[in-house]
Design a protein around this nucleic acid. Structure first.
Length: 221
DNA sequence: GACCAGGCACATC
DNA sequence: GATGTGCATGGT
């Protein structure tokens, strides 16, 4: 039942928007960095911060490892929350160097549950950030939940408004084929839909899901 | 000027 | 376990 609805939604979104080519980023480390920088932040601002790191030729674990947090903060300033995000990036990099010789390749041997648990133990890496890293940087079968996804799922009656992150992840992850490319595209499409049609103050006109069962009045933040 | 954006940790109840 | 607050820039 739910899996049929989820499949229908995916079809409608893909038909309307086409492939989203996520995650934007040329390297595994760029994707990881972007996942932290985009926390509660518009992607356009993240791009400016990443551009700064690229111009300075600092977008590698080694280079950032040797940079202090205050200098890093200056470079990522356009992404907002720059002091806290600089610390969070350093936390992740310190973990990588303390336990894995600073090499992302050394994480490939971990199974998904183990890697997720380790990421979540890093201060500054919460569920969405960890799951974005798992799916988009490490190609693991994890469905990423974000504020848009939650809002859309609630508004279309796929889940109760009180549902927490893990409950939402369970909804998508266990009612869809275990397909990394599908998880990748689906989450990206939900964000696309959210940006264009599913903000907190709902303006649903022209929404590709307009004809589906709908509870417009709900405000989910 | 208000409101929002691809969250998270921490304090407090 | 639920709720409130600080963190900060840049676009609409």
């Amino acid at each position: 039942m739910t899996s049929k609805q989820l499949t229908e939604i995916y079809q409608l979104l893909f038909d309307r928007f086409g492939p989203q080519n996520w995650w934007p980023g040329e390297t595994q480390f760029e994707i990881i960095t972007g996942a932290i920088l985009t926390q509660n932040t518009n992607w356009a601002n993240v791009e400016k911060a990443i551009a700064n790191l690229k111009s300075a030729h600092l977008l590698t674990p080694e280079k950032l490892h040797h940079l202090d947090a205050s200098q890093l903060a200056g470079l990522i300033r356009p992404a907002g929350y720059y002091n806290i995000k600089a610390k969070r990036l350093k936390n992740l990099i310190n973990w990588l160097f303390s336990n894995y010789d600073g090499q992302l390749i050394n994480l490939e041997g971990l199974d998904t549950d183990q890697l997720r648990a380790e990421l979540l133990a890093i201060k500054g890496v919460g569920r969405e950030t960890a799951d974005s890293i798992l799916l988009y940087a490490f190609n693991r079968e994890i469905f990423v939940i974000d504020a848009y996804t939650a809002r859309i799922a609630v508004r279309h009656g796929l889940i109760e408004p009180e549902a927490d992150y893990e409950r939402l992840r369970e909804l998508f992850q266990s009612n869809l084929p275990q397909d990394i490319q599908l998880f990748n595209e689906y989450h990206a499409l939900l964000v696309r839909l959210g940006k264009e049609f599913c903000k907190t103050k709902a303006k649903c006109t022209g929404c590709p899901l307009e004809k589906l069962p709908h509870t417009i009045d709900i405000e989910y933040s």
